[in-house]
Each structure stands twice: as C-alpha cells, then as structure tokens.
Amino acid sequence: MPIKKESTDFAPTYEALVIGVSAGGLKALSAIIPSLPSDFPLPIVIVPHRKHETEDYLVSYLNKRSSLTVLSASIGAPIKQGCVYIAPSGYHLLIERDKTFSLSIDGKVNYSIPSIDILFDSAAIAYQETLIGLILTGANNDGSLGLRSINFYHGLSLVQDPKSAEFSVMPQTAISTTHVNYILPLVDISDFLIRLLME
C-alpha cells in the first residue's frame, strides 16, 4: 500500500516517539526497532502490555537486536536521543513536563498496568505538537484515548494497519476513536519513520 503524505504548510520538528503495543507485541516491535539506525533522531518510549516480572526479557531481547540502546525507563532519567525506553512491568510510566520519567502504581487503566493511555496523555502534555504516537497490535482498547490526546495537542498519530496486525482490536479501536494521520502496514513502519525524520 503506497503511503500518501498529508500536505502540511511547514514540517514540524518532532522530539519524541511513543509506542503502545499489546498482544503480538514482541513480533511487531522486532519488525520495527531493530530496523532503525543508531542515529535515529528521536528517543522512543514504549508501553508494552505484559505480566509483572522482575527480569525484563523484552529489554534484553530487543537490545541484542538493535543498534539503538534499549533499556528500562527509570524514574528521573532524562529522555535521550539514541535510546529506546521500555515501561517497566507493574508500573504506569509517565513523562513530566521537564522531559523526565516518573512512575506510578495507581490502579489498572483499561485492565492494564502499564497503560498506554497514561503514557500517551502525559507525553502529549509534555511534548505537545512535537510528539509522534504509534499504536500497534493488541487485543484491547488501551491507547485510543491517549492517541486522541496527542491529536488534541497537534502531534502526529500513527496506527498499524489492522490487516497487518496479529491482533487487530487495538489498532482498529484507535482508528474508530480518533483522527489518524497515517495507517501503515507493519513492514512499512520503520521505513516510514526514517523517511519522515531523516530525509
């Protein structure tokens, strides 16, 4: 499917990319993160739904395969280019206005902790129009309202094409909840990001 670029009067400068993913996440993230170059210009922050475990398998798995540094997001850490931050399991991950991380253990949102909505809402406030949000495969509704917040602050909203998703519910719900700038098949997402941000 060809990607048609929406016409804009000026090209905004983006500062961060946030990604929400649930069921089917390992495969989807493996198709995106390892394909990004080490000089990819934006920090990436990911909320993946998974069981609360102390050892974070996903972090080491992706880090081994990527030229970007994949690590677990920790409190107070500044958010840096060249890094991919994964929300620790069992905590909500938020971004403060000073572009540092904070965590909370308030109740589950959309049956999930960490919740994608919580990251996206806080990131939208912190980064406003310089934020890109991306919803990938998943079997629940988390992330839709968060993507709407990103739209509200004039950030860029991306959703994986539900047809290319292992579980289509989450991307489908996002598309029907809010305006989405681009709907992209999984295989095209990393190329799209590189072209958008690096050319």
């Binding site: 909500h92 938020l94 403060e96 904070s102 308030d106 806080s122 912190a126």
Partner: peptide, 9 residues
C-alpha cells in the same frame, strides 16, 4: 508531588 500523575488525577 510528581506533576504528571497528579495532573491526571
């Protein structure tokens, strides 16, 4: 208090 979580509440 850390502001992001407070703001949400």
């Amino acid at each position: 208090y850390a502001r992001a979580s407070l703001e949400r509440k």
